[in-house]
Structure formats: C-alpha cells, structure tokens
C-alpha cells in the first residue's frame, strides 16, 4: 500500500526508459492506447467540452441579464 502511495505521489516517477517487458497492460491503459483508454479519453474530453460550453452559455446569459 505504501509503495503504491509513493508511486502515485512521486514527482517524475520512473522517468528512466523502460524495457519492453516492463511495459505491461496497465501502461497501455494509462496511455490511452487500449479500447478503454481511448473511450475514457474521449469521454473525458467530451465532459470537459460540455463543462466549458455550459460556462460560456451561462456567461452569455449573465451578460444579457445585465
């Protein structure tokens, strides 16, 4: 558990070049080159875009109100 905590909080963790063997499935998922990675990335971008559009609409609405 401590090891996983250290891994997630370390700055520039393992910034050495890895062997091909060490690059497992999880790395591909985090990079977004698997189906779930790609779908998740697209969904994330979609959500961010929606939030931004909502903010823009709200700002326009506020401007019109004033």
């Amino acid at each position: 558990m401590l090891q996983s905590f250290q891994r997630s909080t370390a700055f520039l963790p393992e910034y050495g070049f890895k062997d091909s063997d060490s690059l497992g499935e999880s790395a591909s998922v985090l990079a977004g080159t698997t189906i779930s990675g790609l779908t998740g990335s697209l969904l994330t971008l979609l959500i961010i875009s929606t939030v931004i559009i909502l903010i823009i609409i709200y700002k326009h609405w506020r401007k019109r109100q004033t």
Binding site: T9, V29, T44, I48, V51, I56, K59
Partner: peptide, 27 residues
C-alpha cells in the same frame, strides 16, 4: 507539481487536468 508527477506514458490519465486551464481561459 501534479502535472509533472504523472507517469511518462500517462497521456489519458492526464487529460482530466485540461479542465483547469480551459476553465481559466473561459472564465
């Protein structure tokens, strides 16, 4: 600090962080 702490291959995991600059630019 958090952006630099991501793993060197974590492209997709970094994407949610885009929200911050995007919100600042719009707001």
């Amino acid at each position: 600090l958090i952006i630099t702490s991501f793993d060197q291959y974590s492209v997709s995991q970094m994407l949610p962080m885009l929200l911050y600059p995007a919100v600042i630019i719009v707001l």
